[in-house]
Simulated assay, not measured.
Amino acid sequence: MQKETVLLHGWGMNRQVWQLIEEELKSEVSCLVKSIDLPGFGHGAMPEAPYSLATAAQLVAEQLADNTTLVGWSLGGLFALHLAKYYPQKVNKVVLIASTPYFAEAEGWAGIKVEVLKNFKAQLKENSAKTIERFLAIQAMGSEHAKADVKQLKAWLLNAPEANPDALSTGLDILLNDDYRDIFSSLTQPVYGLFGKLDSLVPRRAITKMSALNSNFQVEILPKASHAPFISHRAESLNFLKSVL
């Protein structure tokens, strides 16, 4: 049976963000490649239980074949780590793209300032569309194609239903509170990472700390990319993915 690679998107987005890279990967790797919507995003169904990383990840697990390779971008990376830990038969490899086991800044850990995430949550209640747009702009900061990147991301967003408000709000809580550093350090599956040196959401120091937590973590950092390297630097990202899938 042919092995599968499943692409998991980030907060506020949907599976449409993968459409270009997904098509190219399908033609260049031997495994099956597909993307799915995280619960509450795009066409993804909401959990019946209160939304959390665990309840949402359970719905994702039900869509995975055994021995799947997970490619998780940003928030999708936390889903990939959770699935690798709690559904090990489903996951044979994890590839993180601009993702970290703990997104919030903390003592001894570089990340997003807590106030920034809390402000996003407060603004989400006022105007979710504008908040997502601001988040997209932050994701592209530093990229030499920032305006084009944001325009592309916004266009893909519009190709699917709006995200569920509870999924958006709880998604920010997950980014703020869920700490998967211990899980990341003890995973038995191979873990790879692709990052942008100019990423303001996943600082370079966090990548260094991740390498210290897991000695088997294999990393590539694109010097001119930001938080969405597979969009701004598609060729380099494809080469990396082809080398690890």
Rank of each mutant, 00 (worst) to 15 (best):
Q2G: 10
Q2N: 08
K3G: 02
E4F: 05
V6E: 01
V6K: 03
L7G: 03
H9E: 04
G10F: 06
V17N: 04
V17E: 05
E24G: 08
S27M: 01
S35P: 04
L38P: 10
L38T: 11
P39S: 13
F41D: 08
G42M: 03
H43K: 12
G44L: 01
P50Q: 06
Y51S: 02
A61S: 14
E62N: 14
Q63R: 15
S74A: 12
G77L: 01
F79V: 00
A84M: 04
K85V: 07
K85M: 07
Y87W: 14
K90T: 02
V91P: 04
V94A: 02
L96M: 12
S99C: 04
Y102Q: 06
A104G: 07
E105W: 08
G111H: 11
K118A: 13
Q123M: 06
S128L: 01
A129T: 14
E133Q: 15
F135E: 05
I138T: 13
M141T: 12
E144I: 03
H145C: 03
A146H: 12
A148I: 02
L153V: 12
L153A: 13
K154G: 02
K154N: 08
A155M: 00
A155P: 03
L157C: 12
L157I: 11
L157M: 13
L158D: 13
N159F: 12
P161N: 07
P161T: 13
P165R: 15
D166V: 14
A167G: 12
L168R: 14
T170I: 10
D173A: 11
L175W: 09
D178L: 10
D178H: 14
D182H: 15
S185N: 09
Q189R: 14
P190M: 05
V191M: 10
L194Y: 10
L194W: 06
G196P: 07
L198T: 05
S200L: 03
V202R: 04
P203S: 02
I207K: 01
T208G: 00
A212G: 09
N214H: 14
Q218W: 09
P223S: 09
K224R: 13
K224N: 08
K224W: 03
A228F: 01
P229H: 06
S237M: 03
N239T: 10
L241I: 04
K242F: 00
K242L: 00
